[in-house]
Amino acid sequence: MEKDTRPMLEIKDLVVEYRTEEETVQAVNDINLTIRKGKSLGLVGETGAGKTTTALTILNLLPETTGRIVDGTIALDGDPIITKDSSGKSVAAKTDVEMQKIRGNKVAMIFQDPMTALNPIFTVGDQIAEAVQLHQKCTPKEAEKRAEEMLELVGIPGSRKTDYPHQFSGGMKQRVVIAMALACNPALLIADEPTTALDVTVQAQVLEMIKELKEKFGTSVLMITHDLGIIAEMCDEVSVMYAGSIVEHGTLEDIFDRTRHPYTRGLFNSLPNIKDRTARLKPIRGLMPDPSNLPKGCAFADRCDYATDRCREGKPTKRMLSDTHFVDCCLYEDGKDEDRL
């Protein structure tokens, strides 16, 4: 275990909205996230839970016309990205040029679809070298050498650097994207559903590789996924997101063995059990609420078997059940850590 436990990424009270003429979508509602150096955090949730929005906010890549940071601060390695100005309003702490230097250098992101992340008209070697040269002072020769090294690192022969993206298969492309992301030794890697577009056996290869690289370079990882299986394998801590809020957070043991939030439990129950194949699935009933029209109380109340009038009347009080285990549910307002599901 490393001694350095300072936070690599610290998100505080973040609120993000998408505003259009017709409606305001509350995509992220007051979330707190901390990733310590060299650790990996899994962000799990369903479509529309606000996972990707959170990632885009960190990189300051929200769609300019609609996306708006309403509240909160973000700091990367102690360096503010989003701060509060004197009147308490959240503003970007960096200029666009400064952000460009941070993106790809200190923080790198892997997207879900490797097919669209690569430019089809340049060789993969050139694309990786370009990323290196953008952020590091080096000659084109050195950059090219670095590109070759990176390809080898992700398990692609360096001689293939002169190939174009279409000459690679899906899994290989994702490896190239990862090579590109890691070329500048980022301190934080944001992986947004990095294996969803890949086949199971290829997914296994890519996950194995990310794990190895993480250990080798001590990179912090924010792993965004809907797959609890990937979380179990890859992460140290888990945040479960629902309708823009983090409803439960804790270590792997907290979430998998001491599940407290009804939604987290519902997610587990929805999954087919490999050990007991005939067991009937217990889905969560209903649908996620419309994010442009969230209920007054707990957003999960309408789908929850334990909901009371208390849940519908107001937001639950956030509680720490132990040093590591956080839950946002009315059932635990007394702060006692016992299974109430």
């Binding site: 995509a27 529309g48 990707t52 419309d290 442009s292």
Partner: peptide, 9 residues
């Protein structure tokens, strides 16, 4: 993600 939801009209 959330922004892709269509309004129910």
């Amino acid at each position: 993600m959330a922004k892709e939801r269509t309004s129910k009209k």
